[in-house]
Amino acid sequence: MINFKPIISILFILLFICCSEPTPKEYLITSLEIMQNNSIHKNSIDWKELRNDSFKQLESKKTLEEVYPIIEQALEKLGTHHSFFHSPEKLAGIYDEKKTLPEIESRIISSETAYIKIPGFLGNESLTKKFAIKIQSTIRKLDDPNVNNWIIDLTSNWGGNMWPMYLGLAPILKEGVSGYFVSPENKFLEWNFSHDAVYEGDEKMLEISNSYYLRNKNPKIAVLISRNTASSGEAIAIMFKDFPNTKLIGEFSYGVTTGNTIYDLSDGARIVLTTAIFADRKKIIYGGQITPDIFSQNPVDQAVALLNKKEE
């Protein structure tokens, strides 16, 4: 899960390096300091060895672009499997103003059961709010008075920005704490929905007007996950752990249940660094794969059968 403000999550830190362009050595030093001060694994890495290995590769490098692969290798050595480096060119593609919102598949499966599939998402600030609104609008259209069951499909949700997904699904999740980021110092920072907005601790991450609320306040819910459910997709799945009348169905998730912080560098490049681990509403800490409540190779059919089962 990538971490922006307002685009994504935790403890957003913007690194401004002004004045003259740094040398390749200064650029690498700054990048390594960001990692050492903030990585979720900062207390278990041999930083002297990592620095020595990185500086050995720096010989004869004359441009900042030549340092990019060294930074990428250093991030890999952190062992988070979720930290990465974006060049200015790659960022331009990610936040292209011409990008469109992903499609949201939805349908009424039976008179009592609605289905919505939430894809991964990453985009600029304008698209972020529009995506949250699009999810809520889809839920509003599905929310017939007879609908008592909801299937939320995250099986293709690769992650991206968790906040519009969270705010979009807020009509189902309800107000209150839905989960946490946990720092290397074991401090818990809550994910919270309240009054049309989602928060990271006390910091408002995203807000829309007139958030929708379900007609049926106590629906039965099935959340579908797979090995393709990753990062922010896993964060959404965790929000439904131990939620009333809810089961997770499918396969083990991908296994990057960790939060990232963005650090912008002087030339417009960006380090996306894993700085926290996810925890659910009961403060159970993850960090790896999510285990479904019910394993199934046909999760939609399994969910329909479960939700339609009458209580004895």
Rank of each mutant, 00 (worst) to 15 (best):
L167W: 11
T291C: 02
P102L: 05
K187H: 08
D293W: 11
I40E: 00
R270Y: 09
K309N: 08
I94T: 01
N210C: 06
S231C: 08
I249G: 02
H41M: 04
I271F: 04
S231E: 05
T128P: 05
E234M: 06
K130P: 02
M1F: 10
I17P: 03
L306S: 01
E59Y: 06
P69M: 02
F131I: 01
Y115F: 11
K134T: 05
L101E: 03
D301P: 04
N146V: 09
R140D: 13
T275S: 01
E203D: 14
T113I: 02
I45C: 00
I7R: 14
P164N: 01
T291K: 12
E175Q: 07
P145N: 02
I29M: 11
G93H: 15
L169C: 04
W150T: 00
A305H: 08
G160C: 02
I10W: 14
I10D: 10
F12D: 13
I221F: 04
I40C: 00
S209P: 10
I13C: 03
I104N: 07
S83A: 02
A276S: 14
Y199K: 04
A230D: 13
P299S: 04
W150E: 01
M162L: 08
A114N: 14
K283D: 00
F16R: 13
L127R: 07
G160N: 05
G288P: 03
K204S: 11
E103K: 15
